[in-house]
Each structure stands twice: as C-alpha cells, then as structure tokens.
Amino acid sequence: MPAFRPRLLLADDHEEFLEEVIRLLAGEFELVGVVRDGAELIECAGKLNPDAVVTDFKMPKLTGILAGRKLVETRVCAAIVLLTMYRDPQLVRDALDAGIRGYVLKDRAGEDLIPAIRRVLDGDTFVSTLAS
C-alpha cells in the first residue's frame, strides 16, 4: 500500500460503467466523490479540491471538455483525464486545447486509466491509442 493515495473525483452518468471504474481505481486512489454531470463536477471540485479528476465527455448540462477547461482555467485542478467512448482525433485535439492532458478510451480503460491518471498527476500527457 503506498503511503500517499491521490484524491480522485469521478464524473460519469453511466452507472454500470461507473461501478467497474470505481472497483478498478479503489485500490490505487482515494475516491473523494462521484458526480453525474458537468455542472456538478465544477461545483464539487471547488469544494473537494481533488488531486485529479476523471470525467466522461458526454454528460448532461456540460461536456467533460468544457467542464475540464473551466477547472484548468480556474486553477481548481490541473490533472484531468477525459474518459470517453469517442476516438476521433478532433476530440483529442479539443481536449488537449482545453488543457486536459489525459485522454482514455473507455474500452481501453482497464489497461490505460491508472497509468493515465499517474502520468497526468506527474504533469505529463497520456492519450490512448486510437486505432482499433
């Protein structure tokens, strides 16, 4: 057990998927909260000050990219991973432009998510291989 467990805030509205992600990350990180939409993400992040945020792209009210951009711009959190079903290069560019340094495809999350969060926490960038 590492001495330091980064505090993590999760944002996704798909329950079944969320359940598995929580199970995957529980051993490695301290999960401080789970939110279901973009607006809630911004609000909770402000209150909870997580070390890292993992957010879905497509969510009610605000997309993960717009919420992420806001968190980066307001310096609430700089370590953000976008966890999404979309593998379009344009979306990756949009995410990187918004200051989101982690881009993980949901169907590669089992392998990619933990390394991505760690890289982003270290100030690096991580993008899942887009090619199928």
Binding site: H14, E16, F17, E19, E20, V21, R23, L24, G27, K58, M85, K106, D107, R108, A109, G110, E111, L113
Partner: peptide, 21 residues
C-alpha cells in the same frame, strides 16, 4: 449502441482488467 451497449462492454472490459490485476 455507442453510449449504452458500448459502455456496458467497456465496463465488462474494465471488470476483466480489474480481475486480472
């Protein structure tokens, strides 16, 4: 398909990854 079934499959994939760990 994309948001429903796709995410369920992704969840399954994560479950297997968790198990494997």
């Amino acid at each position: 398909l994309h948001d429903g079934l796709g995410q369920q499959i992704a969840a399954l994939s994560i479950a297997v990854a968790s198990m494997k760990r």
